[in-house]
């Protein structure tokens, strides 16, 4: 319930108007949204019980390593069952396969639709979504870690919360099934990072400073 309360309200996209190139405009709109989501995510992480008591170095490591996964949980969740198989980055930013391809995000599209279909088949509850998001951050396999014991305790606490929730619903196998969806999330996040770095480096798409700093940390 703490994680549900901490979850920020979804953002709206601000349509870019700096260019006539439609696919570039899509990318710029998306990058602006991601940058603002990233800012919110950092504030959100600080409210997860246990996160702020980690050392600053570990807080930075977990965020640098897990931010994209944590953001994509929300995208996959919102994209479930969307008409036309779109990716719902925001209520007013829905991209279909052709738009993603034109924007250089074809691989990301495939991975995220796969994840959205998986979430849909599992009928995730809001409680499960927020817990998966926190686990994506805690389980990001950040390296190096300053205090492995504290990070482990943080992970254990989230795992316990998930197990308590599932046993209250008498769903014996659910926690395990949710954890088994994490590799697909990591794969999607890897593709997203590569796609945005490629857009920046090869197509000279300008990125906001925070977004670029976080992408560089994963490069």
């Amino acid at each position: 319930s703490h994680l549900l309360l901490t979850e920020p309200a979804p953002l709206e996209a601000n349509q870019d108007e700096s260019t006539d190139d439609g696919s570039l405009r899509t990318v710029l709109t998306l990058c602006d949204l991601l940058n603002r989501e990233l800012l919110l995510l950092i504030g959100w992480a600080k409210q997860i019980p246990g996160f702020s008591s980690l050392s600053l170095v570990d807080q930075m490591s977990l965020l640098q390593s897990g931010w994209m996964e944590a953001l994509l949980v929300g995208v996959a969740w919102r994209s479930q069952g969307s008409a036309g198989e779109e990716l719902v980055f925001a209520d007013n930013l829905r991209l279909d396969a052709a738009q993603c391809r034109a924007a250089g995000l074809a691989e990301l599209y495939e991975a995220l639709r796969h994840l959205a279909a998986k979430y849909q088949a599992m009928e995730l509850s809001p409680e499960e979504v927020v817990t998966l998001k926190a686990m994506a951050l805690a389980n990001s396999d950040a390296e190096p870690v300053d205090c492995p014991d504290s990070v482990q305790r943080f992970q254990d606490w989230l795992h316990e919360a998930l197990q308590d929730y599932e046993s209250s619903r008498r769903e014996q196998h659910r926690a395990g099934r949710l954890l088994m969806s994490l590799p697909l999330l990591r794969q999607a996040a890897g593709r997203a990072v590569q796609a945005f770095l490629r857009l920046h480096r090869h197509r000279s798409v300008p990125l906001h400073k925070l977004l670029l700093e976080m992408l560089d940390a994963k490069a």
Binding site: L39, I42, G43, K46, L56, Q59, M60, L63, Q64, K209, L210, E213, M214, D216, A217
Partner: peptide, 15 residues
Amino acid sequence: KEKHKILHRLLQNST
């Protein structure tokens, strides 16, 4: 750490 100065600053802010 210098390379990650925005994240560093955001985490140090108390809000």
